[in-house]
Design a binder for these strands. Structure first.
Length: 360
DNA sequence: GTTCATCTGTGCCCCTCTCC
DNA sequence: GGAGAGGGGCACAGATGAAC
């Protein structure tokens, strides 16, 4: 029997060496842990230690049945399986376990199990694709841009009042209550996510220094001659897009500057904060509950809940009626290719089907 | 067109903290 | 002291681009 608690630890360092983010590692390890414990439990194994022999075909099939019984979404089952396969591959090459030389039989057994799970995974993939097609066909049209931005409209007077207070401040002293700071953080990040379709990760990962660099640089003029700044967010990237950009007109440039000078800097001084991020909580910590914040803002102002994902869908769908050049511009700004926009965000097939019938 | 690999976002529960 | 806002963390779901 080969214990693999060692492998479990080494799996983390293995992923770190591959430059996988801590969030992704944690997510992957959590999935593997849950799967393993559940698999053991379903097989009646109550031991506190892990052994590779606990990983079995019967256990995996019982686990699939359990997921089915609990009505877990097939996408989730697929994600669990993917993470688990990655872990199994690692176990078989783990230099500390040395299964291939120390326990050839166990090495072969796990290799066979990997093949079987890989086959099951193909079935899950097909199921997810079918589900995706059904969702794309039945999903209703996303809200119109005005609806997406509703909370920004109804809360604007309160927000402008808060910023006016900041304009009258000098650089010293405590300035804002916890609630006030939370409101400002929520409104500004809601503007980025709902008003511009920026992903919450981009708002969360924007650095103070990135804003400073943009603010101190030259202004870029729009076609109408209005000055803008463009903040490059390097710490949020997808495979193709090397970075994310946040464009701000003169109104928002002023707002961001006020925030940076009278909220972030004073909080940093009072709380001895050191993190690099732009958005800061009243306690000095990194503000990273953007989607929660948007929901709470919408609840506070009694408007419909619209998430950042829905907002992206709404903007992508809205831009469908615009010229091709504009669609590409928007796709690029939202950090994905135009092809991705077509395959992942297009909605309203139900409506277009009815329109087509009417035209026949 | 479909599958694979990976990373990111959302919802919810529960605990802590602030303000009245 | 209590109500409710704020925040941490887990589980699940979705997004995204590359490879096949």
């Amino acid at each position: 029997m080969t214990q693999f608690c060692l492998s479990f630890q080494n799996f983390r360092s293995h992923q770190r060496k591959a430059h996988t983010s801590e969030a992704a590692i944690n997510n992957s390890l959590a999935d593997v842990t849950r799967m393993t414990w559940k698999m053991m439990g379903l097989q009646g194994i109550t031991g506190q230690d892990f052994k590779t022999t606990y990983l079995s075909l019967a256990g995996y099939e019982k686990l699939l049945a359990w997921f089915d019984k609990m009505d877990v979404n097939i996408k989730t089952v697929l994600n669990y399986t993917k993470n688990f396969m990655q872990f199994m591959k690692y176990v078989n090459i783990d230099m500390d376990l040395l299964l291939v030389s120390n326990d050839q039989g166990e090495f072969n057994r796990l290799s066979c199990l990997q093949i079987h799970i890989s086959n099951s995974r193909s079935g899950l993939d097909s199921g997810v694709f079918e589900l995706h097609k059904r969702q794309m066909n039945s999903k209703p049209m996303p809200p119109a841009p005005a609806e997406v931005k509703r909370v920004l409209t109804v809360a604007k007077d309160d927000f402008d009042r808060a910023m006016d207070e900041l304009r009258k401040k000098d650089d010293s002293g405590p300035i804002l209550t916890k609630t006030r700071v939370a409101f400002i953080n929520r409104y500004i990040t809601a503007y980025l996510c709902l008003g511009q379709g920026i992903r919450v990760g981009a708002a969360e990962n924007m650095h103070g220094s990135e804003f400073q660099a943009a603010y101190n640089g030259e202004r870029t003029l729009s076609d109408l001659g209005n000055p803008h700044i463009v903040v490059h967010v390097a710490n949020h990237k997808t495979k193709v897009s090397q970075d994310c950009r946040i464009a701000l007109n003169s109104y928002w440039t002023d707002i961001f500057y006020l925030y940076f000078r009278y909220v972030r800097i004073i909080i940093f001084r009072l709380k001895n904060a050191t993190h690099p991020y732009f958005f800061t909580q009243s306690d000095g910590r990194h503000f990273k509950k953007v989607s929660d914040g948007i929901e709470k803002l919408q609840k506070q102002y009694k408007v419909a809940k619209i998430t950042s994902s829905t907002a992206r869908c709404a903007w992508e769908t809205w831009v469908e009626s615009r010229p091709e050049a504009q669609r590409k511009l928007v796709a690029d700004y939202l950090c994905h290719s135009a092809e991705v926009a077509r395959s992942h965000y297009k909605h309203g097939f139900a409506k277009t089907s009815i329109d087509a019938l009417a035209a026949l």
